[in-house]
Simulated scan of single mutants.
Amino acid sequence: MLATGLPPMRRRVRAVRHQLRRRRRLIAAALTAAAALSALRTLAPPPADTVEVLVAARDLPSGTVLDDDDLAVRRSRASSRRPVPRPTRPAGCSPARSPAARS
């Protein structure tokens, strides 16, 4: 049956339906992929909290006086930060003479 006697709008609708039927597997695959990507993004864990830390930009020999070129700012996971240990007093040392008291 030819669609020549139909109004122009109806011919367009019929042509679109025909194209959709021809490509239904491709359309189904694209919609399935979009649904899978959407599900993965929804189920993915949130990004880890990060903090900025100051690090050496390169290997530095001991005793080097630091300037801006020697340091770099990097992002690190907040949970990976380890607390800096407090200096301890050597056994038998009084608080006034300990290395921790001088700083």
Results as ranks from 00 to 15, higher is better:
V53W: 01
L31Y: 02
H18I: 08
P87E: 04
L20P: 02
L37S: 06
A48K: 01
A34L: 15
S80C: 10
T88S: 10
T50M: 10
L40M: 12
R75K: 04
R81D: 09
P87R: 06
L54P: 03
R81H: 10
R22D: 09
R22F: 08
R23F: 13
D68N: 00
R11W: 05
V73N: 01
V16L: 15
L6Y: 07
R11P: 04
V13P: 00
I27C: 13
Q19E: 14
V13K: 01
A56S: 14
R97K: 04
T32R: 02
V65E: 13
L40P: 03
A30K: 04
A15P: 03
P90D: 09
P87A: 14
L6K: 02
G92P: 00
R58G: 09
T32I: 12
P90T: 00
G5A: 15
P90M: 12
P83I: 08
D67A: 09
T88Q: 09
E52F: 06
L60S: 07
D49K: 00
Q19V: 15
P46E: 03
R58H: 05
V51M: 12
S103P: 00
R21W: 08
A29E: 06
R102M: 04
R86T: 00
R14H: 00
R82N: 11
L40F: 11
R81N: 09
S79T: 07
T32L: 15
T32Y: 04
A91G: 08
R10Y: 00
A3G: 14
L66G: 05
A29K: 03
T32H: 02
D59H: 01
A44G: 05
H18P: 01
R75A: 14
D68M: 02
R25W: 12
A48I: 13
A101H: 07
H18R: 08
C93D: 06
A36W: 05
R25G: 13
A36Y: 03
P87W: 04
R10D: 09
A57T: 05
L40C: 13
C93H: 01
T42A: 15
T32Q: 01
S94F: 07
R41E: 06
D69S: 12
S103N: 04
L71T: 03
M9L: 13
L43R: 00
L66C: 09
L26I: 10
L40Y: 04
A72K: 03
A78Y: 07
A72V: 15
P45F: 07
T64H: 10
R89H: 01
S94Y: 03
